[in-house]
Simulated assay, not measured.
Amino acid sequence: MKEIFAYGLMAVILLSCNQKDTLCIYMVGDSTMSVKKPEVAPETGWGMVLSAFFDDAVIIKNHAKNGRSTKSFIVEGRWINVLDSLTQGDFVLIQFGHNDQKHNSPERYTKPYGDYYRNLKKFVVESRQKGATPILLTSIVRRKFSEDGQLIDTHGDYPKAMRKVAENLNVGLVDLQKLTHHLVDSLGSEKSKVLYVWTKNSDLFPEGRQDDTHLSVQGAEKVAALAVQELRKLIGDLKQHIVNHP
């Protein structure tokens, strides 16, 4: 998909969601979704390229942030900033899990069926109170293969807990964990490296990078395409605004 990365870097976040005939999508989540600094290229959050799939009537406001969990996103005041901006008819994409599972980081760690579940419920309920539509997205897979070539799940009960929130609260769900598992598994251990940040040595990274969590430009494009395929089923008005069909 030509020029998708360049288009994704456009400052759509600065546009107003109050314009007539606009459809505003807020994104809250972690580093797999967030906007990256140029110096860490080619690392790319899939939220950075999402706007390239839509016409100008769709406005993406990416509030995802590196290293955040549901807990730290709330404690740092990031959620209230999003909530205060929401208006009737907006959409909120909610993707957390990678950092909620970090036991050694008490400022971020949550139990799947404890605070993680409750925080997701908070996002859903409060979005709806503002007239916005929340959509949950399970975490993308990490590239971790066993010696016999099997893709290993690293997220434990977190995707299951999110699916339970979606079921119990009747929330739209994009199951990126399952979708990206199929994608990465189909490529296999070696070929799937192209989706992640595997780079040679540089001044900033003298030993190169072998990052099996964060996405390359190509990986971000693939994940965004998977998300769009599912979002068009959940957001009725979205289909007419898709310009780059995944």
Rank of each mutant, 00 (worst) to 15 (best):
T133W: 06
K2A: 05
R142C: 02
K61Y: 02
Q229I: 04
N104L: 09
E39P: 02
D115K: 12
V171S: 05
A220E: 01
D203M: 06
N244C: 11
I59W: 05
L179S: 10
K144Q: 06
Q218G: 07
V92S: 11
T44V: 15
H241C: 00
T154F: 01
N168Y: 00
Y7E: 15
N66P: 01
K222G: 00
L50R: 09
V194D: 10
L176G: 06
L215P: 00
K200H: 12
Y109W: 07
V75R: 12
V223Y: 04
V12L: 07
S105W: 14
E207T: 10
K122C: 12
L83C: 02
Q177V: 00
F91R: 09
K2L: 03
I152G: 02
D100Y: 09
K222E: 11
L179K: 13
E221R: 11
R143G: 08
K193W: 02
L50Q: 07
C17N: 15
D153Q: 02
H103D: 05
T32N: 11
N81Q: 14
A220C: 02
Y26V: 03
N81W: 01
L231C: 07
L187G: 01
K193C: 08
S127L: 07
N168I: 00
S105A: 12
N62A: 11
T180L: 03
I140A: 15
D185P: 00
E207L: 12
Q95W: 07
E39H: 15
S31L: 02
L226M: 06
I94M: 12
Q19I: 08
M1R: 10
P106G: 08
V197A: 05
G77A: 06
L169I: 03
S105C: 04
R118I: 02
Q150L: 10
L137V: 12
L15D: 13
V197W: 04
S34W: 01
D90T: 03
M48D: 11
H241F: 02
N244S: 10
D115Y: 05
V92I: 07
D30T: 01
F73A: 04
D148Q: 12
Y7Q: 13
Q101L: 04
D84C: 01
G219T: 06
N66S: 14
A225S: 13
P246M: 07
L23Y: 04
G29V: 07
Q218A: 03
S85D: 14
L169M: 14
A6W: 01
L9D: 01
G156P: 11
L151G: 05
H181T: 13
E147K: 13
P38R: 14
V165C: 09
D211I: 03
V228T: 05
F73K: 04
M27K: 12
G188D: 00
A225C: 00
E167Q: 14
I242G: 08
Y196M: 04
H103F: 12
L50C: 11
E190D: 14
Y117W: 13
Y113N: 02
I94H: 09
P106R: 13
G156D: 11
Y196T: 03
K191P: 04
H98S: 02
G156F: 13
L9P: 01
V58F: 08
K164G: 04
